[in-house]
Every structure is written in C-alpha cells, then in structure tokens.
Design a protein around this nucleic acid. Structure first.
Lengths: 336, 336
DNA sequence: CTGAAAGCGCTAACAA
DNA sequence: TTGTTAGCGCTTTCAG
C-alpha cells in the first residue's frame, strides 16, 4: 500500500531517523556518503512519497501552502487556479486560497501565514505604488524566518531570495505587431490601461512597428475608476483620427475588445475592411463576435510550474526563477 | 497559544481520551452525562478547535476535502471558489480542487477520493444524461462507506442521504418577467441554451408573463457544439419577428447577452427604444456596453454555506439541505 | 464507567 | 558517524 519511512529503513537496514535526515538534507545526524546513496536508491526503488501531513504535524506547521491572488472577476485567475490545483493534487500539497486587493489585506495574509505557521506562500503580488517596498521587506523577513516564497508576475521586482515566475510582456507586444503588420493597415493604434505591464506591451509594440511608416496612436486609460464610459471616447478617437483600415492592438483583453467591437458596429465600421483587431487573453467560451486573434498567456502552466518549484523548495532542493512566453492563438471558441 | 485536547483534559480533570470521545460523540468509552456536560463546557470556554490535521493522521485519512467542479472558463466558478476558500480558511479544512467535464473524469475523482481516503467531497455534479444514475449509485456507495458528501446545484435530483445546496431557478425567470413587464414592451422573447435549468428559468418567465397580452417567442440553442454562429440566426429571428420594442430575457448570461448587444448595434437598433434586455449572472467588471439589469446567483454565498455544512457534517452534527434565491441587480461595473 | 497506554508517520534531540 | 528514544495532537483499544 503506502510506503513509509519505516519500510525504507527496514529495506535499507537502517533507522527511520537516518532516512529522514538523508531525504531532507539535514545535518543533525551525520551519515556516510555510502549510506546516503544507498538510502536514496532504496527510497527511489520503493517509490517513496513523504507524508506531508505527518511531517508538518511533527514540525509544528500547517500542512498547507497559502496562496494569495487578486480579487478580480477574471477568467485568467481561473486558469491559474486550475494549474495550481493540478500541481497541488500531483504533489499532495494542499493549498489554501486567499483573495484580496488592498495592501492591508496582503499584510493580513502574510501575518496569518506566519502565525498559523503555514508551510509556504505562493503569491501574486499586485502593485501598490504607495507601499510595495514595505511588502517586499515583510516578505523577506518571512523568508529570513525560514519561510518559502514563490511570487508570480512580479515584473522583475527586486524580490530578493524568492523564486519568481513571470510571463514575458514584451513578447506580447511583438506578436501583436507582427500580426497587424501582415494585414493591410493604413494606420495603427493601441488601447490599454495605464499599468506597468500594459506599458511594457505597448512599448514593445511601438518598437516592433517603428520600421513601418504607419502612423501610430497610443491611448492609455487611467485606472483609478474603470468603467465603460472611460473607454468609449478613446475608441471614438481612434475611429475618428486614424486612417482606415486601422490596426488596433487591444492590450488588455476581453472586456475592452468587446467594447471596441460594439462601438465599431454601432458606428458602422466593417471588420477587416475598416479595422483589424488583435487582443489579449482568452475570449468568451463561445467565440468572439468577430473572429480575432488573441495573445494567450500560459497561466495554467504558470500554476503547475509554481507547484513544481514549490515541491523542490520544500524538499530543500534547488529551484530557479523562470519567465514564460505568451503565444498567438487564431481560433477562438469551443467548437472543434 | 493553541488549545489542545490535553489542555482541556487537564482543566476538566479528566483524560484526553474522555474529551475526544465526548466531542466526537463516540461510544467506545462510556461517560456519564454529568461529565459530558462538564467537558463540553470547558472545551467551549477555552475555545477549543480540534486539529484537523492530527485527527486525520490518526484516523488514517487525508486532511483535505476534495472539490469537483466543471471545467468551465466562467467567472461564476470563480465566485464559487472564492466562497469555498473563505469557508475553508475559516474552518481550517483544506480543499483540493479538481476540474472536469466528462463522466469519466468524475468517476476518477470519486475513486481517488476513496483510495486516498479524503475526508469528504463537495461536488458540482454536471448533468450527463447517459449516466447520472451510475454516478448517483457510486456516490451513495461512497456515503455508505462513511464518506460525507455535499452536492451543489443538483436541481432536486434524487440524491439520497447527501446534503444538497441549490439555487432556485424559477425565481430568476420570475424576476426577469417582473422587470420586463414594467418596461413599455410590445413583445417578449427568451434566448437560452437547451439545458435543464435554462428551461426552468424560461418556463417560470412564461408563466409570469402569461397574464399580459404580449406575444412571447422562446428560443433555445442546442448545446452539442456551442459557437457564436449558432446564436446570431436566433437573435436575428427575434429582431425580425418580434414587434418593437421587444423585451429580451437572456437566460444564460454574459457572453450571449454581449452577442445580442453587438447584433442589435450592427443592425441599428436602439437600446430602450427598440429593445429592452435583462440578463443573468455578472457582466464584465467594467460594465456592460448598455447598462442592463442582471439576475445574480449567489455563488459566493453558496460556497461559504457549503463549508459551514461540511464542518457540521465532519463533526457528526446535523446539517440540512438548502435552496438559495438569486437577486436582481441594476448597476453593473466596478465604479462607485 | 474511568484510566491508561499505544500508535498514525514523521523529525529532533540525545546517547552510544 | 550511528542507534535510540521521545513526542507533535489526536483516536482507539484494552485493562482497571
């Protein structure tokens, strides 16, 4: 049935203690290299999987990893959760999800991780300009106290001593440029939110289209209070001021691209005649109103990868940060 | 710090054994009523919370509850997950999420719950007409073996001996009817997917509008292969055949209502002049293109409630099934 | 009925 | 270096 430490100890002719020490790279019990190898081999052969639950009980820790995610009503999160959950099931490490938006809720999260002695943290760190230094400091303190941390989408913040997993933003801008330059556009435009990663995407788009002679209009919407009313004037400006057909790079995905489509329909523009469109992230399950290409961020993979890294971290093995690249997807909708 | 069994035993002047037996309503150790009450009182006073982890280790169970959810890219799921997670954090019972669509994946899920001895199941049981009897049988077997099960959105299936949590579908239809009848409609229409719950919503809508003399057209899209191409002809029929202004009840929410809006814009219809619209579930975060009312299903609450019930179930206390009602929400979008 | 001990799987301390 | 023992918080079995 289940292979336990005792089983391996018996099979290897040593004490459970030794096995535990070897497998955790602990030094409170010195063991000869010969034995180490032997024990490792036997454990491998018997397919030993440590019981996370029991180990945490003994260590006085909670047998779960805390996950902090932004409180968005966005399917992207669902992708991430799907990936994390898959990894969690594979590794047998339970996750507890926390959702929040404010700096305050984030601090509360870390405190509760510390006081309830959760085994580790996986965290999407939203960007609060007024206090991300404090957050970094608190996180590093947590790490200093022996906590393990994996942070997601940090945009190369100076997150010292923590594994970070990111998605390359510049690639998205380049892919969008590549696509639109292949259409017969008379002008180009970007519509985005005024956030850090949107800016990276937009800038990459600008650089990649600089060689063409097409005029480019870049619009960014302030994020203080987002509502459709803020987008319509920007869309109108693009419609009114850009020579047609205009190639629009919708930098922030689903909802906004549906506004663009709706506004263009209302004003009588024809898709592929008056405008070309490329957008970010997954569209509706049943397809976009127009069939537009989308730049897909691999959030599912990001989640699975995070759990892989974490498993290594918890086993005191090596793990490294990584940056994933988004891909271009042409067909939307469930239909095969 | 943490209150343990031993603490209570000491405070109550008994052995940990007794405390455990009393708190779990177990009979392998007989204890006088007097002592039972006393122990209960002391535990209450000291604010004792059993350590789920430790209890599971001893019982030979996994210290998590398995959750099965459909594999949809739908923010509704996110609401549910948020609620479940909140409940999980409150009760200290970790959850492991599994996602699937097929009957097969569901069976696999139950098997893994059984073999890895998870403590309980919370399950959204999708409807497969070709085999839900088998699923019910398997679930009841699981329950018979001492497993705890809470099922969500079962639509009054004959789920014997399991707690079920549902959302009332008929209420949605009635709310939609109430709203549209207050507008100056010349006709009514429903657009829905051909599923069981959509039908309940539509039928309730029909009944509630029967007293008015308005003509009603009800359209249902087969669900075998969903794509926007399937919706447009139906929307066109409504536009072409229903006297204006037509009041449209979009029975299945976000994506489809955005198609209706787009198509109407493309064909030059004016909102509130040529058509009225009411839809289901949350719209985009930044608001619908038109400001349309929505019938909101309390999925977050559903998740929290599920965890409350489960906590009772695991403590061998009573718990009952419940049905929640959706509410009408007028303003969409994040802006205050 | 009540008291006491054993043990789930694991790790940390301490002898040998 | 190696072997032994104790114990995390809880439940179950078995003597008193």
């Amino acid at each position: 049935m289940k292979v336990t430490l005792k089983d391996i100890a018996k099979a290897a002719g040593v004490y459970p203690t030794a096995v535990s020490a070897v497998l955790n790279n602990k030094s409170y019990t010195r063991i000869s290299q010969e034995r180490r190898d032997h024990i490792r081999r036997v454990a491998e052969e018997l397919g030993y999987r440590p019981d996370f639950q029991a180990s945490c009980l003994r260590r006085g820790k909670k047998a779960t990893v805390g996950v902090f995610l932004p409180e968005w009503r966005d399917v992207l999160l669902l992708e991430l959760i799907t990936g994390l959950s898959a990894g969690s099931n594979r590794s047998g490490i339970p996750l507890t999800y926390n959702f929040g938006m404010t700096k305050n809720s984030y601090f509360k999260f870390i405190e509760s991780m510390a006081t309830y002695r959760h085994s580790a943290i996986i965290s999407y760190v939203p960007f609060w300009d007024d206090g991300y230094r404090d957050i970094l400091k608190r996180l590093e303190q947590y790490i200093g106290d022996g906590g393990k941390v994996i942070s997601l989408n940090t945009l190369n913040w100076p997150m010292i001593r923590s594994i970070t997993l990111d998605i390359d933003e510049a690639t998205g801008g380049r892919l969008a440029a590549e696509y639109l330059l292949k259409q017969n556009c008379a002008s180009l435009a970007t519509l985005s939110l005024a956030t850090v990663n949107s800016q990276i995407r937009s800038n990459a788009f600008q650089e990649s289209t600089a060689n063409s002679d097409l005029p480019l209009k870049m619009l960014a919407i302030p994020t203080d209070s987002l509502h459709i009313r803020k987008f319509i004037p920007a869309i109108d400006r693009i419609i009114d001021e850009c020579p047609r057909p205009v190639g629009i790079f919708c930098v922030n995905g689903q909802d906004i691209s549906s506004y663009i489509i709706a506004r263009c329909l209302e004003r009588g523009l024809k898709y592929r005649k008056d405008l070309h469109l490329i957008s970010y992230d997954h569209g509706p399950r049943t397809g976009d109103y127009f069939d537009i290409p989308r730049i897909i961020q691999p959030f599912r993979e990001l989640g699975e990868l995070a759990m892989d890294k974490l498993e290594n971290l918890l086993a005191e093995k090596e793990a490294n940060s990584e940056i994933l690249k988004p891909t271009l997807q042409f067909h939307t909708g469930d239909e095969e």
